[in-house]
Amino acid sequence: MVSTALAITLGGIWGPALLTVGAVLLPAALAGIAGRLLRTALLLTLPIAISVLVINLFFYPAGREILFAIGPVRATSEGLAFALETLARIGAISGAITLFYLTTPAGDLVLDLERRGVSPRIAFVVLAAVQTVPALVERAVAITAAQRARGLDTEGSLWRRLRGVLPLAGPVLLGSITEVEERTMALEARGFTRPGRRTLLWHPPDSSRQAAARWLLVAAIPLALVARASGWLGWLG
């Protein structure tokens, strides 16, 4: 959240780029997950990154200085600069989200939310949302394997793969929704909606230094806003 706010607040390319290095890549390298983080973040942002680059490079309304032309469309340097600035922000935001996803067990997150007074219902919604992606992938792999066993050809060209896998997207999604519904009923059967405060049997470890670091990060948001408004961050471009 702090990374997102700072990536938007800090101007130019260098602000979000420094944020990505300092707040995302460095901690990821220390945690030994830099490779996984880069792969996952790239996979998540590649489609949007390509569209941001193409649209801004060729169709930026305030573009004047022409870099090159392909038929009637012209790539402008202003469009390129804006695209790179946007990409730096997207990189910082998606990197931070991926780092959070790769380093925070969903169960710990939900327990901590509950400890801080968040309603168990909301905590469950968060947990279900976080767990949906891996469950969806696992389900998709299993269903695709079962259909391949029935002669569905998903090997070979990209077109053949798409033609084979696309009809399975609906059932995979619906199956996952059904799974969440069943889990909801199972929780209901175990008294999930009973009113009153719950006793948590385990608390995720949280040191005072971690708490201080979190508050410092939150404090960085108004500081960055003030610095940006007063022009102190002009050197970032």
Binding site: A142, I143, A145, A146, R148, A149, R150, T154, P167, P171
Partner: peptide
């Protein structure tokens, strides 16, 4: 390919919900 082998070997999965769509 699996699709070719499927002409000779029919595999019924343990969990039908991973097959039915």
């Amino acid at each position: 390919r699996v699709a070719e082998l499927a002409r000779s070997v029919g595999l019924v999965f343990q969990d039908p919900d991973r097959q039915i769509f």
